[in-house]
């Protein structure tokens, strides 16, 4: 059962990463315009290089 001592921290770490990503996206205001973001990916505007 000693494997648990490794598995539990690993699980928590991975879950924590997910949570951190969620909080980051929330802080970056990525939920402001869900409809627009779904459409933006279809535009070929910045396909060649990222928006400056």
């Amino acid at each position: 059962m000693s494997i648990v001592a490794i598995l539990i921290p690993v699980t928590l770490l991975l879950g924590g990463l997910g949570l951190a990503a969620f909080v980051w996206s929330l802080m970056r205001q990525q939920y402001e315009d869900p409809k627009g973001d779904a459409e933006r990916i279809l535009s070929s505007e910045w396909d060649d290089h990222p928006k400056p």
Binding site: V23, L26, Y31
Partner: peptide, 24 residues
């Protein structure tokens, strides 16, 4: 927006905790 974000953040944290506690 700030209030909505605040609620969403708490929901996210509770969801994360729920999944981990459930696994255990």
């Amino acid at each position: 927006d700030r209030k909505g974000r605040d609620l969403l953040m708490r929901t996210g944290v509770a969801g994360f905790a729920m999944m981990n506690v459930m696994l255990l």
